[in-house]
């Protein structure tokens, strides 16, 4: 690990300045991913600007009936917040499905969005990786890619985004708010993560030096009956193989609103808009659910070693839709 200086910012503006004035500065939140990658030598900041104690924590209700979650809110506090649990249970479940109790106590929701992939080649400096060293190549596409992307990847990178939290955020059309020295800005989650293209190292649409301040959740009636289901290689404390966040509003046997997003299948949380379209105003039946899942995955393009993820994603969408419909029916 390279030597670095450390500054604790007392305000957002000071934090922005401390990062802007240094060539190679990074914000430090909970550190659960950044410190990990610094130990691997993947991240080599010359200065860390600690934003963990900025007054950006907490969950507040927005006038329109949504919620705003401050960027430095810990994952634990976000998941335990009564209004998150009441209005967006899938979000609480997704956060609780991530990492461990200890890590959730440290990690911030702002940092959670900016997690880097857990592709083994990304953390191994002796291997080529376009995400870590642009232009060096991708060892995973021809190598071990059992847990890599089946949607939206390119020949430059097939890594997946590891966040659980971002999956329901995508389904609920959250908006990421940030500050820069030039002023505030916001990006819908749908646009927050950039397509892989030929620059997989460029992951988000955040302007350089921007600091995430909060995540805003619009009111979503269906979200009160939402569910996050995560499948992984052991029962807990593992990244997703495939996960799904689903919100479903059924009225008189017909789907009024459906929100679906997948995790573990792409470089970003995958909003399943095709499936949602198939379901809108359709009868809430297992056949329709399966059809919707199959429509969404029609464009899936698995690598030789991960075709199972397509089946798994299809089955998961169908299973969770069915579960929610049955729960509503009771």
């Amino acid at each position: 690990m390279r030597e670095f200086s450390y500054r604790r910012a007392s305000g957002v503006r000071e934090a922005l300045t401390l990062v802007a004035e240094h060539d190679d500065a990074r914000y430090l939140g909970g550190g659960t991913n950044l410190v990990d990658l610094m130990k691997h030598g993947v991240e080599t900041p010359g200065r860390l600007v600690d934003v963990r104690r900025l007054p950006l924590g907490g969950v507040r209700e927005t006038p329109d009936g949504g919620l705003a979650i401050g960027a430095t809110t810990t994952n634990s506090d976000a998941a335990a917040h009564p209004e998150v649990r009441r209005r967006y249970p899938a979000l609480s479940q997704a956060v609780l499905a991530g990492a461990s109790g200890q890590l959730r106590n440290m990690a911030t929701v702002g940092g959670n969005l900016l997690q880097r992939t857990r592709c083994g080649y990304f953390a191994d400096l002796s291997q080529p990786c376009n995400k870590r060293a642009p232009g060096s190549g991708c060892a995973a596409i021809t190598g071990a890619h059992h847990n890599h992307a089946v949607l939206g990847w390119t020949g430059h990178c097939a890594a997946t985004h590891p966040s659980d939290m971002a999956v329901p955020l995508a389904a609920f059309e959250a908006v990421v708010r940030y500050e820069t020295l030039e002023g505030p800005g916001e990006i819908p989650l749908a646009d927050f993560y950039l397509p892989v293209g030929d620059r997989p190292d460029l992951e988000t649409a955040l302007p350089p030096g921007a600091l995430i301040t909060e995540i805003v959740l619009p009111p979503v009636a269906a979200a009160r009956r939402s569910r996050y289901r995560k499948v992984r290689e052991r029962a807990s404390y593992a990244f997703a193989t495939v996960s799904v966040a689903v919100a479903l509003d059924v009225h008189d046997g017909f789907v009024r609103d459906a929100r679906i997003a997948l995790g573990g299948v792409a470089s970003r949380p995958w909003r399943a808009r095709t499936a949602e379209e198939v379901l809108r105003d359709a009868p809430a039946t297992p056949d329709r659910f399966r059809g919707a899942a199959e429509a969404e995955l029609a464009t899936a393009d698995p690598l030789p070693g991960n075709a199972y993820k397509v089946t798994l994603a299809r089955n998961l969408i169908e299973a969770v839709l069915t579960e929610l419909a049955e729960r509503d029916g009771r």
Binding site: Y121, D124, A144
Partner: peptide, 18 residues
């Protein structure tokens, strides 16, 4: 799990080797 090209284990940690 080994990388076929380099012959190295690609999951030498507790996040990869469960």
């Amino acid at each position: 799990v080994r990388d076929p090209a380099t012959g190295r284990q690609v999951n030498p940690d507790f996040a990869g080797y469960h």
